[in-house]
């Protein structure tokens, strides 16, 4: 059995070399660019009062947004708007939209760079590059707003289950549709929400699946910790395949939220008794014993006998 082999070494070496040698030329991200501009021309700031002169409604709302706490920061006191929009003196003079940074008009990567200039080095961003949202260049501003006040701010809205579900289903319509099927996790009922299982910012697992609080295990175990084991007799795919191999977590017409109409069809997917024995084929999954005649209804009820299908401490056949 191979251990870590040299798997860790290439990426570490690559990262060190890249960091040590530096970029081909002095390229900067948009956030850093904005910060550099600000540093180069400190007098380029107009101040929040000047912003409020034209954008009174936004400005008033912003004072009740959590981001307004920047106004208490030494660096941004009196110019909280320009923390994200960059120095605004030129824009204040010309009133031209071309003279101010508007994250909505930037590419997602540059808009994100502004947010990440403050939020990058926070626990929520660990594993950011592995998240589907980061890969697909879904900007922070797709879900978060910076100006809305109080209860309407994303900060407040995203503390409410129904609002989170509403926000996510805005794009993920196919998933929202799956929740309309009769058997589903209790998301439409409001007892859970999308972020109960998914971390929209970053993930170690595919599909932005949240981790279990106990380690590198799927977040499903946060609510189903009886499936965590370890068991004397593990059912292997429970350990190294996603739960979605057998279950459709968003919605199913099967009462146990299985990916197939009946349980035996799910089991057969791995325990199909044809061809090369599993021990020689390079895949896992042993064949059912010969007395399992699928033509007899009794043998289609796999979980009637194999009651501990997720793992057993007492029986190799998962019978008790």
């Amino acid at each position: 059995m191979s251990r870590f082999r040299s798997g860790w070494i290439p990426p570490i070496v690559a990262a060190c070399v890249i960091v040590a040698t530096g970029p081909a030329r002095g390229q900067t991200a948009a956030g850093a660019e904005a910060a550099k501009k600000a540093a180069a021309a400190p007098s380029g700031y107009a101040g929040a009062e000047a912003c409020a002169g034209c954008h009174e409604d936004i400005s008033q709302a912003f004072t009740k947004n959590p981001h307004f706490s920047l106004d208490k920061n030494k660096r941004w006191a009196g110019k909280a708007c320009e923390a994200c929009h960059g120095p605004g003196a030129k824009h204040a003079d010309s009133t031209s939209a071309d003279d101010i940074v508007n994250p909505l008009r930037l590419t997602a990567s540059k808009a994100d760079a502004i947010c990440l200039s403050c939020h990058r080095n926070q626990p929520t961003q660990v594993g950011r590059l592995e998240s589907g949202h980061a890969r697909s260049a879904i900007a922070c501003t797709s879900c978060h707003d910076m100006h809305k006040p109080g209860a309407e701010s994303s900060f407040a809205r995203l503390k409410r289950n129904d609002r989170i579900t509403q926000l996510c289903s805005g794009c993920h319509r196919d998933i929202a549709a799956a929740f309309l099927k009769p058997h589903h996790h209790k998301v439409p009922e409001g007892a859970m929400t999308c972020t109960s299982c998914h971390n929209p910012h970053a993930s170690f697992m595919s599909r932005n699946l949240r981790m279990a609080s106990t380690g590198a295990e799927p977040g499903c175990l946060n609510c189903h910790s009886d499936k965590r084991g370890p068991f004397v007799y593990d059912h292997a795919p429970v350990r190294n395949e996603p739960c979605t191999t057998c279950h459709e977590p968003h919605g199913s017409v099967n009462p146990r939220m299985l990916t197939r109409q009946e349980v035996y069809v799910v089991c057969l997917e791995c325990h199909s008794n044809l061809g090369v024995p599993a021990s020689n084929s390079g895949t896992l999954g042993s064949t059912p014993p010969s007395f399992h005649n699928m033509a007899v209804p009794r043998y289609r009820n796999c979980t009637t006998c194999h009651v501990k299908v997720h793992g057993s401490n007492a029986d190799r056949g998962l019978l008790r």
Partner: peptide, 29 residues
Amino acid sequence: TAGQNNPAPADAKVDTSAAAPVASAADAA
């Protein structure tokens, strides 16, 4: 939220948004 189109799901439960003490941007002025 910031220009993204996020339609509310039609299957949402009792609509609390209508009654939530939400100040619109204009109200906030």
